[in-house]
Structures are given as structure tokens and as C-alpha cells.
């Protein structure tokens, strides 16, 4: 098995390995933070030194290290505003105040912020991936229950599941998100942030994240229900008959025979659903969570930098490609018996 895999993908593996080695070398060659700061002009150096011994901080230093490249921005406030920017790459430090250097510096800085580097899980790509993954997880679980309810012989249960699916597929996700985030606490008299006793901003983020996860999972459950239902119904009737003939009851048949076989057939559709949710997750900008979309929009607004959306798109694409690959592998793993 293993050796076959290596034989089949030998070219790709070698290519990936070469790229990895180059990246590692580049990352090792990358100048450090001190090296970047040591390139500043004498005036700026003076300001930095003065800042170190003064209680009135006038210098703002931003340092972003991104894999193989890094970026530092040093600016002063007050009279005589100064600003210097540097990019470090492959053992060299480049001025990044104008032209191509400025562009590269900006992109490094934006990407760094949109990935949520240097922040906790409630920021940037980390937030997007966490929200999407948890949504799909809960969505599939809920979807499985809904699918079982929908194909159940109990009329009421089946009708309820159909109504649920109709409702969540028939209304906009954004409004569902608003209902969970604003209406539900409004009616029941609580606030989402109260669920967490973190410092103020953290509690707000965590509360909003919880609300978003609930809204997304409820919504995704409706879509996953259809995925699971069609997968279950694609299983040969003979499997039910054989299980019954062997004395297995409905629950045993479902959990041991039918659902395990359905899983493989669900994976391509769940992978699709994952990508849909990944993109839908950008809706959390409406409840001020700091995901990739919100951060890019904020950068656009505060810095007037219309190019910020390009790295935003690339980040989304990379995440999509990565998880597409993962789902592909999972599908292969489940196909061993075919």
C-alpha cells in the first residue's frame, strides 16, 4: 500500500519536497527582527533610543514574520512624523517605502493580519477554519439525525424533519445568523458575551463565535440532512434485508451496516458543503467577528488599500485546496473495500 502510494505520486512528492527544502532554507536565511531594525536611519534610531528611556512612547514598531519573508514598519507620532518600512528576504533587507518594495511589504503585512498571526483563535484565517470545521462537524451530526427522522416511518417525525429542512434552506443564512445573535438573546434576556467571563473584547468575540457556530450548524444540518439521506437511500436494499434476516434491529442495521457504507458516498458532498460554509463564514463580518473578510474590509477602510482583497482571495483558495486534498484522502481511506 505505502510503496504503491510513493510510486504513483513519486513526481509530486519530489516536487513538494524540493519546494519544502527551498522554503526551509529561505526561512533560515531570513534576516531577524534586530537586523531589520538596525537598518533604520540615524534619526529614527535616535527616536527609538529616546523611546526606550522615556515613558512617552512615540515610536510604533510593527514586525510581521511570515514563513520566508518578514516586514517591519517603524513610525513615529507627534511632531515630525517619520515612517520607515523594511522587508527581509533571503538574507537581505530591502527598503519598502515605495515601489515594488512597498507593495511587497504591504502584502506581507496584510496577509499576516488576515491569517490572524500573533492573535488567538478568534482572529483571521484561524477563526474561519475553526468555525467552518466545527460547523461541518455539528452539521453532519445534526444532518444524520434529521435524515434518519426524515426517512423514518413515523409520520410526525418525518414531517418535522421536512419542515426543519424547508425552513433552513428557504431562508437566508445571514438572517438566521441575525436571529441567533440578536433576536434570541433579546427574547430570552441574555447577552452572548455573558456566557464567557473573559476580558471584555474576548468575551464579545467568543459570544459572537458561539452564536455564529449555532446558526451555521443549524443551517448546515439542513443541507447535510439531504446529503445523508440520499447517501443512505443509495445503499442497496439487499443490505437491509440481509441485516433483518440476521436478526438485527433497525438501530443496529443503521449504525453498523448502512451508515458506515453511506459515509464514503457522503464525502464528496460533505467536501462541497465544507467549501460552501468556508465561503459563507465570511458572513460573520455582520456580527463583527474578525475573520479574513472583516479584516480585509477593515484594512481597506482604514488604509484605503484596495489591493488587500487579492491576498484575501489567495488565502481562501489555499484553505479550499488544502481541505479539498484532505477530503480526497479521507475518501480514498474509506474506499479500501471497493
Amino acid at each position: 500500500m505505502k510503496s504503491q502510494f510513493f510510486k504513483k505520486y513519486s513526481k509530486q512528492i519530489i516536487a513538494v519536497a524540493i519546494v519544502l527544502v527551498i522554503c526551509i532554507i529561505l526561512a533560515a536565511l531570513k534576516p531577524g527582527k534586530d537586523e531589520l531594525l538596525s537598518r533604520t536611519s540615524p534619526e529614527m534610531q535616535k527616536m527609538i533610543d529616546a523611546d526606550a528611556s522615556s515613558s512617552r512612547k512615540r515610536v510604533t514598531i510593527t514586525y510581521n514574520s511570515l514563513f520566508i519573508i518578514n516586514y517591519a514598519s517603524i513610525s513615529t507620532s507627534g511632531a515630525n512624523v517619520m515612517s520607515e518600512k523594511y522587508v527581509g528576504f533571503a538574507g537581505k533587507v530591502y527598503q519598502a517605502d515605495e515601489g515594488a518594495g512597498k507593495f511587497v511589504g504591504q502584502m506581507v503585512n496584510y496577509t499576516y493580519r488576515m491569517l490572524g498571526c500573533g492573535e488567538n483563535l478568534m482572529h483571521g484565517a484561524k477563526l474561519t477554519i475553526l468555525l467552518t470545521t466545527l460547523t461541518v462537524l455539528f452539521g453532519v451530526l445534526l444532518g444524520t439525525l434529521l435524515a434518519l427522522a426524515k426517512i423514518s416511518k413515523k409520520k410526525l417525525l418525518s414531517k418535522l424533519a421536512s419542515a426543519y429542512i424547508f425552513f433552513f434552506r428557504g431562508t437566508p443564512l445571514l438572517i438566521q445568523l441575525f436571529v441567533v445573535y440578536f433576536t434570541v438573546p433579546g427574547v430570552f434576556g441574555f447577552a452572548w458575551r455573558d456566557l464567557f467571563n473573559a476580558s471584555d473584547a474576548e468575551a464579545v468575540y467568543k459570544g459572537a463565535f458561539t452564536a455564529a457556530l449555532i446558526a451555521f450548524a443549524l443551517n448546515s444540518g439542513a443541507y447535510c440532512a439531504e446529503i445523508v439521506r440520499s447517501a443512505i437511500q443509495s445503499i442497496d436494499k439487499g443490505q437491509f434485508e440481509a441485516s433483518k434476516a440476521l436478526g438485527m434491529n433497525y438501530a443496529q442495521t443503521m449504525t453498523r451496516i448502512i451508515i458506515p457504507q453511506s459515509v464514503r458516498r457522503m464525502i464528496p458532498n460533505v467536501s462541497n458543503e465544507f467549501i460552501m460554509i468556508l465561503k459563507d463564514a465570511s458572513l460573520v463580518f455582520a456580527i463583527s467577528l474578525m475573520d479574513i473578510t472583516t479584516i480585509s474590509k477593515n484594512i481597506m477602510t482604514s488604509e484605503g488599500s484596495y489591493l488587500v482583497f487579492i491576498p484575501a482571495l489567495i488565502i481562501y483558495l489555499v484553505i479550499t485546496a488544502f481541505f479539498g486534498f484532505i477530503f480526497d484522502k479521507i475518501e480514498k481511506k474509506f474506499s479500501v473495500y471497493e
Binding site: G238, Q239, E241, A242, A245, G247, I257, P260, Q261, Y337
Partner: peptide, 18 residues
């Protein structure tokens, strides 16, 4: 009593994932 009856089908109906 049903467990006292074993059945063999035309199309085998083995569990493919096992």
C-alpha cells in the same frame, strides 16, 4: 424464533465494508 431461520440471497448481500 426468527433467529432460527438463516437466509441466503440470490445476490449474496454481504456487507461490503466488512
Amino acid at each position: 424464533l426468527l433467529l432460527e431461520m438463516g437466509m441466503v440471497f440470490q445476490r449474496f448481500n454481504l456487507f461490503p465494508h466488512k
